[in-house]
């Protein structure tokens, strides 16, 4: 009698794969909107046509009043108020600008300075015609060529920032996402890292500050932005990447702003989220390789054993 096992195996594999295809790739394709990456080109924003001068830019940043809301720690400018008070004033704590030049796209920064609601893609929420002003005041120019002035300011921000290669995943996340999103598994709160309290009272005081900050954030955003600890598993890399690039593409009308990170910074944000929610991925790859080698050897021995035992049966 001829051996039917290969045919039977093919039938089993065929039906298993068809089922898998239908309930996994196909069903998810139907259920979830696919958003293509725009490669962080921010094509809707105008190009910077002028060559910026960092020295002029420094002057402009000082005189335009940026430091009235933003700290620039590396330039020796501390935050004018603490994060809780800043959130009470603006809804969310304005970011420190020390490394903004490395984390954010230059075109985005230029547009942000000129027209924040447009750069952030929150014009549906902040409509000037309805007197809904974005908390960040646009820069109206210092009397010269406004495009030149903005190019200078961006050049200044780039000149004081660390090299883009030195931006760490933690820096990128905390700056671009961390003032709205907590990451409990990395002990990150919207007002900073929570750790190392000797006294329970200090810890409670910190928690109260977080809650106060969250109250302001909640009324500013409509709801408390979610903790992102497990988002790398509950969403996926492609979703997160395209959401960061343009939140409106996924959730039309969302209060979440486009934060304008460079492609490189977005990758670092995702790296940070992997560290939070898929911490053991490197160990998994390593152990996985070893287990596969072991199990293949096991299967070979099992096959040889079977051949030896069955030799006498036929």
């Amino acid at each position: 009698m001829k051996n039917k096992e290969p045919l039977i195996l093919a039938v089993v594999i065929f039906f298993s794969l068809v089922t898998y295809y239908l309930v996994e790739p196909y069903a998810h394709h139907v259920m979830h909107k696919h958003v293509d990456s725009e490669n962080f080109t921010y094509a809707d924003l105008p190009e910077i046509t002028k060559t910026g001068n960092a020295v002029n830019g420094k002057e402009l940043v000082m005189n335009a009043g940026c430091a009235g809301c933003h700290s620039i720690e590396t330039a020796g400018m501390p935050a004018p108020m603490d994060s809780v008070m800043a959130a009470q004033s603006y809804g969310v704590n304005p970011p420190d600008l020390s490394n903004a030049g490395a984390i954010y796209d230059a075109k985005f920064l230029a547009e942000l300075i000129k027209n924040p609601a447009h750069a952030l893609k929150v014009e549906h929420k902040f409509d000037e015609a309805k007197a809904q002003m974005h908390p960040m005041v646009p820069f109206y120019g210092m009397g010269g060529d406004i495009d030149q002035e903005i190019a200078d300011m961006v050049a200044y921000l780039q000149s004081i920032a660390v090299s883009p290669a030195d931006v760490t995943p933690k820096m990128a996340f905390e700056n671009a996402c961390g003032r709205c999103h907590a990451v409990g598994y990395e002990k990150w709160t919207q007002i900073g890292t929570k750790s190392g309290f000797k006294d329970k009272k200090d810890e409670l005081a910190f928690d109260i500050k977080v809650l106060e900050y969250q109250d302001s954030l909640k009324s500013y955003m409509g709801k408390l932005p979610p903790d992102l600890s497990m988002y790398i598993r509950s969403r996926n890399e492609q979703f997160i990447s395209t959401l960061i690039e343009n939140p409106q593409n996924h959730l039309a009308g969302t209060a979440m702003p486009r934060v304008g990170v460079t492609a490189d910074s977005a990758a670092k944000v995702i790296e940070y989220m992997k560290d939070a929610g898929d911490t053991k991925r490197h160990e998994r790859a390593e152990v996985g390789k070893n287990v596969m080698i072991y199990i293949v050897i096991f299967a070979i021995f099992a096959l040889l054993w079977k051949k030896q035992v069955w030799k006498d049966l036929h």
């Binding site: 996985g288 299967a299 099992a302 054993w305």
Partner: peptide
């Protein structure tokens, strides 16, 4: 001996899923 041979092949498949394609068994939601 035949059981173990099939088990060996099954475990290759199983551990491949465990390490490299576990998403289908752990719903993102």
């Amino acid at each position: 001996s035949k059981d173990m041979m099939v088990v060996g092949i099954f475990l290759i498949f199983f551990f491949y899923l465990t390490f490299y394609n576990y998403g289908f068994a752990m719903d993102p939601v």
